[in-house]
Amino acid sequence: MDPIHENSLSEVTDESDGCGAKFSVLVVSDKFQGKPLLARHRLVNSVLQEELKTIHAFTQKTLTVEQWKAQS
């Protein structure tokens, strides 16, 4: 995945056993700061607009750097 922001981390897990239709992603970015969940997910969706057309199942978790540090 293209990084949304320099200060970001993304982790993609293929859950489809290789058929490539089911993914979950963890995106950590300061660009999410102050944005509600829906806006964060919409941001990720817009970056992956083309890819999502062929992905059947997509799960995402969107955290700011601060939130990510707090949980790990």
């Binding site: 969940l37 829906l38 919409r42 607009q49 999502l52 057309k53 799960t59 995402q60 978790k61």
Partner: peptide, 24 residues
């Protein structure tokens, strides 16, 4: 303008899909 199903609407407004509902 949301690529996946399910989709939840509250009061006519789109709220989110499965991930968002779960986190909410």
């Amino acid at each position: 303008n949301w690529p996946t199903i399910p989709q939840v609407f509250i009061n006519g407004e789109f709220v989110g899909g499965c991930d968002i509902m779960l986190q909410m």
